[in-house]
Design a protein around this nucleic acid. Structure first.
Lengths: 238, 238
DNA sequence: ATCGCAACTTCACGCCGTATAGTTTCTGCA
DNA sequence: TGCAGAAACTATACGGCGTGAAGTTGCGAT
């Protein structure tokens, strides 16, 4: 039985090394931006040769893909947690919590935001499938929950909506329609638009483009949430 | 007079070479993304040595800064032109034209969009001042014109706005306030929020994040414009 | 005792930005 | 007309990058 025991041990060591590579890569990213994620720097930090990493990730892009997936999942966790921590009975509070969690996460992890939503690393091209789209869909599903919470108040605004299910990706609908069976296509369109609104404001802020325009991006974001709730007709409790 | 004549000729040659460097750099960017802007590739394309470029730009970052400025200016020109080509009497048409020009430019020049709004190039850090912020302010000023056009219809939505002039960058206000003397701070906040909305949707589309969610990003953008006009109360002519 | 394999290193190649030094070519003045 | 000097450009070199190929080491299984 030493056979299975030592194989288990080998696999454990392997998993630990893999975890360390990712940990060091994320540290490098946090301090030097996504560009600082280089195999040689990671190896240097770990007291290894750069080529040793090829035993764990086939290419640098594979490593980056994994990191994107991890970081994106962390973002999804953060916004989901904020949502779940608020009472289902008060849509305004939930929506505000979601949006604030999104912005806060981005400001705390600006390099992670760049990794996930920007050009991650020179020459990187994202693969087709994988778990990163999965995390993206979690975020979109969260946004749809947001739209669903607001829908009773907002539906009258979208009576003549021209959207139908074919306008959306089946992979997204597979997650969204079972979760919200009564929601029409127009609400998913609303969710994606809200995504765009929040992403845009946060993105401009993270990339420093807001800095030259406003001295108070937080206030602008609060105004955004307020106007969003008002537009949707979601009542704000005093 | 050969003195001044030949000096003029030298300067002309110099200007021509500078222009060629920028032209080749933009071609490389268009075909291979901002990462493809390398001094060696440019030089190769021009039949020169990489070091020759140092006679025209002190560092690669200097070249990139110039390119960002040029490309950003081209974007500002495009949206300004679309705005000016529409009748001042119909705010809805003007706003729609502006927004469509913004998205269209981004889709036609995706790499330019990434250069201006993303991480331009590995290791690049933008300098403080320079003409790129100038182009950014032109875009913001255009957006303020948009807000100003809608303001007669939209002002009632922002009666209890908490914004004042100190919330904005003086450099922006220097351009905006003389152009729109009657506009309150709330309208500038609205302009920046609209910027965020449009930037977010276009950015998600350019970076491929919308692809996994909707099959019809154009329709989503049209809906965005329609809802924008509706929430602002700007009448749409039939 | 030996085989096999996983982990890791060494060496090499071609990319990159850029510093330094040398070469060519042309300008402007004596 | 001849020559100093500047401008434009090349040559060489350094360190950093991703990565392919080949070699080394150590350990479990037979």
């Amino acid at each position: 039985m030493t056979a299975t025991g030592s194989r288990a041990r080998r696999e454990r060591l392997r998993a630990e090394t893999t975890a360390e590579i990712k940990k060091v890569a994320l540290e490098l990213m946090a301090s030097g931006g996504p560009d600082a994620i280089t195999l040689r720097a990671i190896a240097r930090e770990m007291g290894m040769t750069a080529n040793a990493i090829y035993g764990y990730f086939a290419t640098r892009d594979d490593l980056v893909t994994t990191l994107i997936s991890d970081v994106y999942t962390a973002l999804a966790d953060a916004v989901d947690a904020a949502w779940s921590a608020t009472p289902a009975t008060d849509p305004a509070v939930r929506i505000e919590a979601w949006a604030n969690a999104f912005r806060t996460w981005a400001l705390v992890n600006p390099q992670g935001f760049r990794l996930v939503y920007g050009d991650p690393v020179p020459g990187y091209r994202a693969p087709e499938g994988g778990p990163a789209p999965e995390a993206a869909r979690r975020v979109c599903t969260g946004l749809t929950a947001l739209a669903a919470a607001a829908w009773p108040h907002a539906r009258h605004l979208y009576r003549d909506s021209a959207f139908d299910w074919s306008d959306f990706d089946p992979g997204l609908l597979d997650k969204v329609r079972p979760a919200f069976p009564d929601l029409p296509p127009a609400a998913v369109a609303l969710a994606l638009r809200v995504w765009g609104h929040l992403h845009g404001l946060v993105s401009l802020e993270v990339y420093g483009h807001m800095h030259n325009q406003t001295t108070n991006p937080e206030k602008l974001f609060r105004e955004e949430i307020a106007q969003l709730l008002q537009t949707l007709g979601v009542p704000r409790r005093r």
